[in-house]
Design a protein around this nucleic acid. Structure first.
Length: 417
RNA sequence: GUGGGUGUAGCUCAACUGGUUAGAGCACCUGAUUGUGGUUCAGGAGGCUGUGGGUUCAAGUCCCAUCACUCACCCCA
């Protein structure tokens, strides 16, 4: 019989890595709180229609990557493939917009997409992200990007990534641009690939993304989105750039940046890293002013980003970031079964005083226990053997310099403090 | 969904053109006289070479299939 393994595209985060994750999560919590954002946690699964409505029926995510099933009552449910939709659903359901005109939230957690795994891409993966509701002003866009920038800095990645920035305009501008682009492409449509031809109908902006050289050539001289901006769109985009400059956040305008999901409008951005191989997007986001309304809420502007946590960790590894190991203060060496209750009790008292204390559950030799203490990088060993028990003492050994002294059991806690 | 690459110990890798009981480093365990870690030295454990077939006197090595992992396309974080 072959052994049971984790599902393709899912991974265990083992003790050797969990430290990195915890430190990374700490950075996210810390920076988001610095900006006054509050954490929101939503369920892992939702009604399928939440995603098909918001993300878009024609997107790859919805059309072929979702883990969906029919619940016993016939309702179609789905493991969340992204988090903005869930957050917006929650925002509407609990009328968070009614509690304060500006709601700023962050999240982290697992997502599920049934794709073929490769570097930086898994079927269960983790994202963190932020969402800000209520403001359509450009300073809100700048703030969102600043959070991303701060987190990247804290992770040592700010000068290892590139911020690509674009505006895809308001819906009316997008609509006009769509037509202009289609008119430009139409005469040569037959020369485009099958997928591009399909996109010509469903989402022509995506054709700009093509990597095929001959298609890039055909696109030379195509109208740009900026030609279709309304005055407001233009002013908004310029302000965003102005604020980014004021905060010394470097960016490059990328007119071909078109985010995949249907709900974006105006500002879109993406941080990429060369450490990631083909999947170079580390963090992506944008404005979604129409999404709350699409999902049945009161029209509310919003903007946010999502970032791949595994991808961050890959990039951090590549940048040579090291995580600090957790330190143990005291290793309790107990040599005698008779001393166990004393050892356990003293160890616990030390923990109550805030020390990290480990004891050996295997009743090993003193040599083995001290070796183990060393592996834990413990600063002290407290040894409790036969002679110590007789005299109500312990031996306190400093593992850095090897010095040791005898201390009464009564005084040891005080002595350590 | 499509293509390429790779499967040998927990990890990283050896084993000439097929040829005896498949090796090394790291990690792990035990010792080096009584109850003392790191360094050193000695020893030990750990593999049905991914799985199933085939060719051959002989397969880790060649062939086929299958599974897994991986990278890329697609798309995205």
């Amino acid at each position: 019989m072959n052994q049971i393994r984790s599902i393709k595209g899912t991974h265990d985060i083992l003790p050797s890595d969990s430290q990195k994750w915890q430190q990374f999560e700490q950075i996210i919590h810390h920076v988001c709180q610095q900006f006054g954002y509050k954490e929101i946690r939503t369920p892992i699964f939702e009604e399928t229609r939440l995603f098909s409505r918001s993300v878009g029926e024609e997107t790859d995510i919805v059309s072929k990557e979702m883990y969906s099933w029919e619940d016993r009552d016939g309702k179609s449910l789905t493991l969340r493939p992204e988090l903005t939709a869930s957050v917006v659903r929650s925002f509407i359901q609990h009328n968070l917009g009614g509690q304060a005109p500006s709601q700023r939230l962050y999240y982290m957690g697992p997502l599920f997409r049934r794709e073929r795994p490769q570097k930086g891409r898994q079927r269960q993966f983790h994202q963190f992200g932020v969402e800000a509701f209520g403001s359509e002003n450009p300073e809100q866009d700048a703030e969102i990007i600043a959070i991303a920038w701060h987190i990247l800095s804290e992770c040592g990645l700010n000068n290892k990534t590139t911020l690509h920035l674009n505006s895809i305009g308001s819906p009316s501008c997008r609509k006009a641009y769509r037509e202009a682009l289609k008119n430009f492409i139409r005469p040569n449509l037959a020369q485009f690939s099958e997928t591009s031809q399909k996109r010509f109908e469903t989402n022509p902006l995506r054709i700009l993304d093509t990597k095929a050289e001959h298609e890039q050539k055909l696109l030379e001289g195509a109208p740009t989105i900026s030609q279709c901006y309304t005055n407001k769109d233009k002013a908004h985009f310029e302000s965003v750039q102005h604020f980014l400059n004021a905060m010394n956040i470097p960016f490059s305008i990328n007119e071909k940046l078109v985010r995949g999901l249907d709900y974006y409008s105006r500002t879109v951005f993406e941080f990429t890293s060369t450490a990631l191989g083909a999947q170079d997007a580390l963090l992506g986001g944008g404005r979604y002013d129409g999404l709350v309304e699409t999902l049945g809420g009161k029209s509310t502007p919003g903007i946010g980003f999502a970032a791949g946590m595994e991808r961050f960790l890959i990039a951090m590894e590549d940048a040579g970031q090291k995580s600090d190991e957790s330190k143990i203060d005291v290793y309790f060496v107990c040599l005698d079964e008779a001393g166990l209750s004393t050892a356990l009790s003293l160890a616990n008292k030390l923990r109550q005083k805030g020390f990290n204390v480990v004891s050996d559950p295997l009743r090993r030799s003193i040599k083995a226990q001290l070796r183990d203490a060393n592996k834990f990088k413990a600063r002290f060993a407290i040894i409790l053997g036969e002679s110590e028990m007789e005299n109500n003492t312990v031996t306190l050994k400093n593992l850095d310099n090897g010095e040791q002294e005898t201390v009464t059991q009564k005084d040891i806690i005080q002595k350590m403090i």
